[in-house]
Design a protein around this nucleic acid. Structure first.
Lengths: 196, 196
DNA sequence: AGAGTAACCGAACGATCGGTCGGGGCAAGA
DNA sequence: TCTTGCCCCGACCGATCGTTCGGTTACTCT
């Protein structure tokens, strides 16, 4: 919607503009005309930098997925008790989500209309499954409250974390900061999930 | 996507088909051609029952909003201690969400591209504000844990509840039932929110 | 049997979609 | 000064968008 001025575009800097518009209007609701207005260059010029509209989506989603998957290989996610690894992954996932907010936002909203979107959904399921395994293990260790089904708890945990994209805005205003949000997520989730 | 057979359509029965397709492909990603295929009648016949594509969206969203707002006027939501009213509203909202799943799903996904969508977002904000007031009051009563900001807690609570639309499917399979889900939501949320 | 009407259809409307094409301007290197 | 190559443009493509239109069924009521 807003005009962007810059000397020249790289595929990445153009991607940043495109993702912002995608998140504002939805991917399907965004035309190449919308992108050209937002980027301040003509519609045909966009094709000098990227092959297609779908490539923009693929690039954005890849970036989001890479960020999320990388967390699972960090030391805090692979060593120690399952419940502690789970807490670590929860906090880090929330942080990555906020650091790469526009890209993760886009990832969480794909509906599966194209091959690219279906690929994104599949990779996302892989990721969710790995965290679900962690919850399963923490349950087996007896570190989770027993009165809530583990699969349900997994869904609710993800629901809470992913909902961050609906309201968190990085520009520091009176609102909560990145670290405060991450802390609140961990606290709220685990004071409910962890055995007293 | 799938063919639907029926003697004749009413605006409501057609709406049910349309909403299903909207949720599968996204509103913007759904063409009238898609709807006609799913409904088993021609594109032009749809206009015999409804004025426009946007009217379908408006009807669906209205139904969802009505269901949610009605909860706030039920006896359990207006009498008693704030923390108890909050718990009641949380459970009932989860139930309504599951009872009216396709319609609420659509409501939660609008992006604000048209007047109808902006109206939906505004009404949704009204609703959220009323629940936020309830949380505020429970906090003032000293019934909420003090180490998490109340506005943050509100966001996370809604995030958890609303995430139900992403995975709950009513056809009873091996998965959790409506009441089990509602119970799990309340338990997970309040064992984290309520003061020990 | 005839009239009226709800439900439906194919064809076509102007607008907009994602994408292509040939070429222009301009800074850097020769 | 001339050439090269990057960045950009307006004009245009066939396809598809939401919607309209004139007309045809098939059923109901008299």
């Amino acid at each position: 919607m807003t005009m962007a001025k810059r000397d020249t575009y790289t595929p990445d800097s153009l991607l940043a503009v495109a993702v912002a518009v995608f998140n504002e209007r939805g991917y399907d609701g965004t035309s190449m005309e919308h992108l050209s207005k937002a980027a301040g260059i003509s519609k045909s010029s966009i094709y000098h930098h990227v092959r297609s509209k779908e490539e923009l989506l693929r690039r954005a989603i890849s970036r989001a997925l890479d960020g999320l998957f990388d967390v699972l290989e960090e030391p805090g996610a692979v060593t120690g008790r399952a419940i502690d690894r789970l807490e670590y992954v929860t906090r880090r996932e929330a942080e990555v989500l906020m650091d790469e907010l526009p890209y993760v936002t886009l990832l969480l909203r794909v509906r599966g209309n194209t091959d690219t979107e279906r690929w994104a959904m599949e990779r996302r399921r892989e990721f969710d499954q790995k965290v679900a395994d962690l919850l399963e293990r923490a349950g087996a260790d007896g570190d989770l409250r027993a009165d809530v089904d583990i699969r349900l708890a997994t869904r609710l945990l993800f629901g809470m974390i992913n909902s961050i994209v609906e309201w968190y805005r990085p520009g520091r205003g009176g609102a909560a900061s990145r670290d405060e949000v991450a802390e609140a997520v961990v606290r709220t989730a685990f004071a409910g999930l962890r055995k007293p």
